[in-house]
Simulated assay, not measured.
Amino acid sequence: MTYEVHFLQALVLTVLLEAGALLAALRWLFHADARTLPTWKILAAALACTSLTLPYVWFLLPALELPHLQSLAVGEGFAVIAEAALLMGLLRMNPKGALAASLICNSFSALAGSFLLG
């Protein structure tokens, strides 16, 4: 299987995991009301966040040729910060809430992805 096919599999899995995590976090931890923040908006934001950050992590980060743990830290750090900024714009979240939500989503998908994909 090619690198690009692995990327597409990871993209689909990451979108599913992070969309579920974001929906759960916003509804149960942040108590976001479905009337003021519809589910479709949360899911669309999760799709946008992952679709806009994962290609950088998969296709540009390897060019830095960092050791595995450093690459993981840089990639996840980039994703958390970039996705927090996107959540602030797309869902009008405050910076602290957006950063917390992004950290929850990325931590969940990184742990679940490593468990599911080895």
Rank of each mutant, 00 (worst) to 15 (best):
A45S: 09
L52C: 14
L37T: 09
A79E: 12
Y56W: 15
A73T: 06
D33R: 09
L61S: 00
R27Q: 12
A101F: 08
A46H: 06
M88F: 01
S102K: 01
A48N: 01
V12C: 08
A100E: 03
F78Y: 11
T39K: 12
A48Q: 07
S107M: 05
L90G: 02
A45M: 02
A98M: 03
P55H: 13
P95S: 03
E18T: 10
L72C: 10
A45D: 04
Q70F: 15
F78S: 04
E76S: 10
F78L: 09
G75P: 06
E65K: 14
A24F: 09
C49M: 05
A48T: 04
L11Q: 05
V57S: 15
A98Y: 01
A25I: 11
W40L: 15
A98V: 00
F78W: 07
L37R: 14
L16C: 13
H6Q: 10
L60Y: 15
G89K: 00
G75F: 02
G77F: 04
L29A: 13
A85T: 08
A25Y: 03
C49L: 04
K96H: 04
G77M: 05
H6D: 15
Q9Y: 13
L8V: 12
M93I: 02
L23T: 13
A98W: 00
W40G: 12
L11I: 05
K41L: 02
L90H: 05
I104Y: 04
L23P: 07
L37M: 07
N106C: 09
H68K: 10
G77N: 02
A79T: 15
L13I: 11
L16A: 15
A19S: 14
N106E: 01
A101E: 05
I104R: 00
L61M: 11
T50V: 12
A101R: 04
T36D: 02
E83V: 06
A84Y: 06
E4G: 11
R35G: 13
L37G: 01
L8D: 05
W58S: 14
H31N: 08
T50I: 05
E18M: 00
R35P: 09
L103W: 06
L16S: 14
S51I: 00
L52I: 03
L60A: 14
T36L: 02
H31R: 14
N106R: 05
E83Q: 07
P67C: 03
P55G: 14
G75Q: 08
V57H: 07
G75W: 00
W58E: 14
E83N: 04
V74C: 00
W58P: 02
L66A: 02
L29G: 09
M93N: 04
D33N: 10
A82C: 07
N94G: 11
L103V: 06
I104P: 01
L72P: 03
W58N: 12
P62T: 00
S102D: 10
L13P: 08
G89W: 05
M93D: 06
L64Q: 05
G89L: 08
D33L: 10
V12N: 00
E65F: 13
G89S: 02
A44G: 03
F78I: 11
L8W: 14
A63L: 15
L61N: 04
W40F: 07
G89E: 05
L43D: 01
E65T: 08
A24N: 03
A84M: 13
C105E: 04
L69K: 07
L29N: 10
I42T: 06
G97Q: 13
L90N: 01
L23Y: 15
F30C: 06
A34F: 13
P67Y: 12
L29K: 11
S51M: 11
L61H: 09
V80I: 15
